[in-house]
Write a protein that binds this DNA or RNA. Structure first.
Lengths: 194, 194
DNA sequence: TCAGGTGTTGACCGATCGGTCAGATTTCGG
DNA sequence: CCGAAATCTGACCGATCGGTCAACACCTGA
């Protein structure tokens, strides 16, 4: 059984991702969920609280992936870096709507605490690269890899229909691993079991 | 001498890019330009017309880069593909604010004709890849390269301060060329031809 | 000097937004 | 069966938005 609050979170996430937060009214969400506007405001104190509640699961997982301890493993180019890439790609696949909001509306939602926190997490990666990665070339490789993956899966216009998610996942991991020189010898090899 | 209309276009472009179209009121633009709200509506029939006018130069240049004739050159991996990458990177650098709007607010502004046109242009690249590029791997390479470059230069949170634009440009062209195997002999790990 | 375009403005309007509130309805333990 | 808590709703409110309009200042050519 899905509660009304859960349904509202689900609908709101889709609506915010597809039409944009500011362009989506509480009334629209209420209509699509089959309840009144007042009901939405009963379950969530404000529109912003609804957004935060809808994004919470995604940002929690992002927290886990980008933990500072795990981040330290990125310096080396070995299996840990490959694992990080896999987790990042899976995060994008599992939370496409939320990721789309982070990618496509980051500037618009700067004043929303939870979005600010997500941005800060990503800045953390950027800051880590600034400190630990020497060449600008390598920084750009990281930026292109992570940004490219995010834009490809969560960005709007360029995103292809993506019929086969598994194939896309495999291709993405291959390309990203290749770009970041993860296990160079195996770059084009099929992703091993997981 | 810069006319009032030019100044309004300039201010509006920055404001729309940094705060978002729907979150930016005509009053804010008027204030920042030192004129009244009515003056803005005198020069531009509506807020949407102002957005279109501000984005026009950028989309015109994008038109030139993504022309179908030039697109056909992408199939080969030679100098023409490298030239395309250079033009695309320069487009992002020269029109960062406009590109930022396309990248970060594409979904939100789907109903604005000029943005829809920009999205269509990019879809055109996607469609071209669908027809002419065989392997999913190669498609993903293109997607990551173009999306990554766009997100790195025009996307919000991951975008580093970018102190040295020339160095960034050079690094980006190198990395993108490497990723798309522009000079196959020099690529790090040439994926088997398809 | 004067007539007429050009640019600018404050006052105003209807619509819509997020949010409040008192009350109706449903649910459920005792 | 009952009463209280939880849930839901229509009516309403103040604020803000995009946009209109009549009036005012300014410049310029005849």
């Amino acid at each position: 059984m899905t509660t009304t609050a859960d349904e509202l979170r689900r609908v709101a996430l889709e609506e915010f991702a597809s039409a944009g937060y500011h362009a989506t009214s509480i009334q629209q969400i209420a209509d699509r969920a089959g309840v009144s506007k007042a009901t939405v405001l009963y379950h969530f104190a404000s529109k912003e609280v609804l957004l935060e509640s809808a994004l919470a699961p995604a940002i929690d997982q992002l927290d886990g992936i980008l933990g500072k301890a795990r981040l330290a493993a990125l310096r080396t180019g070995g299996e840990q870096r490959a694992e990080f890439l896999r987790q990042f790609v899976d995060f994008l696949l599992q939370h496409r709507s939320a990721a789309s909001i982070f990618v496509n509306q980051a500037t618009t939602l700067e004043d929303v605490p939870i979005v600010r926190r997500a941005n800060a997490e990503i800045q953390l990666v950027s800051g880590y690269l600034e400190e630990n990665v020497g060449s600008l070339d390598e920084k750009v490789r990281f930026g292109v890899a992570l940004g490219g993956a995010a834009y490809l899966l969560a960005g709007a216009p360029l995103a292809m229909p993506v019929q086969d998610l598994d194939a896309m996942r495999a291709a993405l991991i291959t390309v990203l691993g290749d770009l970041l020189a993860v296990t160079p010898a195996l770059a084009s090899a099929p992703t091993t079991s997981d």
